[in-house]
Amino acid sequence: MNEPKHLSQRHCLEMFARLSEYVDHETASDVERRIDSHLAHCPACRVCLATLQRTIALCKGTDVARLPDDVAQRLKQMAQKLQNQAGAIHRGG
């Protein structure tokens, strides 16, 4: 395989596979320590981490779709219709 130098290193590859887990603090503590020390001296993996973190932050920052008033209105009607049906069944025994 002709892999780039930095990714041919075992640690860079391990890092790459676990980056999301690491960002989410879901790695075992020994793995986390190993990744920490790798990051301290691997600029390529630091870039990888920074761009991944930014991607996640941008996803979290996407705006929430606004519920249109007419949709809200139709949902309200639907809910009322369901309630009434159920109420009728109840009353009818």
Binding site: P4, L7, F16, A44, V47, T51, R54, L58
Partner: peptide, 25 residues
């Protein structure tokens, strides 16, 4: 998603990941 070759390996954080978030979004 791995870099295609050595030249694709970045060693500097690009602008879009370095700038304050509100300036990017």
């Amino acid at each position: 998603f791995l870099p295609a070759d050595e030249a694709a390996v970045q060693t500097q954080v690009p602008q879009w990941a370095a700038m304050p978030l509100d300036q990017v979004l």
